[in-house]
Amino acid sequence: MEFCDECGSMMKTDGDKWVCPEGHEKLRDRAKEATMKTTQGQEHSSAVDMSDVDDAEIGPTTRVKCANPDCDNDRARYEMKQIRSADESETRFFTCTECGQKWREDDH
């Protein structure tokens, strides 16, 4: 993946150069590209079967009230991801250990 030095947009290849949506261009560096990772060919990858995995192996849990009003459980698996700009806090994603309800929590 290459980003434009002028506007910061993600660039796409066009022959022997990289081009951004704003029209800025720079020459491709084949040696640098050889070290890049690609997702090409992964479009049809299959889901991972987690049915035989013990819940203790999936990740950390925390004490939090389930978002499902019909569930009284107070434990959920969680993970944190940076989905907004780097100067904002991470978003917490929860999955109830009892009913499987998923929800997210953002700091405002």
Rank of each mutant, 00 (worst) to 15 (best):
M1W: 12
E2T: 15
F3L: 13
C4D: 11
D5H: 06
D5F: 11
D5P: 07
E6L: 08
C7N: 08
S9Y: 04
M11R: 11
K12P: 00
K12L: 07
D14V: 11
D14M: 13
G15V: 03
G15D: 10
D16I: 04
D16Q: 11
K17S: 15
W18S: 03
W18D: 05
W18G: 02
V19C: 09
V19H: 03
V19S: 09
C20Q: 05
P21T: 11
P21Y: 09
P21F: 01
P21D: 08
H24M: 02
K26C: 09
D29N: 05
D29F: 01
D29Q: 00
R30F: 03
K32P: 00
K32W: 01
E33R: 01
A34T: 02
A34F: 01
A34G: 10
A34V: 01
T35L: 05
M36Q: 11
M36H: 03
K37A: 12
T38Q: 06
Q40F: 03
G41M: 00
G41S: 05
H44M: 05
S45M: 13
S45P: 00
S45D: 07
S46Q: 10
S46N: 08
A47R: 08
V48A: 12
V48R: 06
V48P: 02
D49P: 10
M50G: 07
M50R: 11
S51Y: 01
S51H: 03
D52C: 07
D52T: 05
V53G: 03
D55E: 11
D55L: 10
A56C: 02
A56K: 11
E57L: 05
I58E: 07
I58R: 10
I58W: 07
G59R: 08
P60Y: 03
R63Q: 06
R63L: 13
K65C: 04
A67E: 08
A67D: 08
P69L: 02
D70P: 00
C71G: 08
N73V: 04
A76Y: 00
A76T: 09
R77K: 11
R77H: 15
E79L: 13
E79S: 14
M80E: 15
M80I: 12
M80N: 14
M80K: 13
K81G: 10
Q82L: 13
I83A: 13
I83R: 09
S85A: 15
S85E: 14
A86R: 13
A86D: 14
E90R: 12
R92S: 15
T95C: 14
T95W: 04
T95N: 09
C96I: 03
C96S: 11
T97Y: 02
E98G: 01
E98W: 01
C99Q: 06
G100S: 09
Q101T: 10
K102V: 14
K102Q: 12
R104I: 10
R104P: 01
R104F: 14
R104V: 01
E105V: 05
E105Q: 13
E105I: 02
E105F: 07
D106T: 10
D106W: 05
D106Q: 13
D107G: 13
H108F: 12
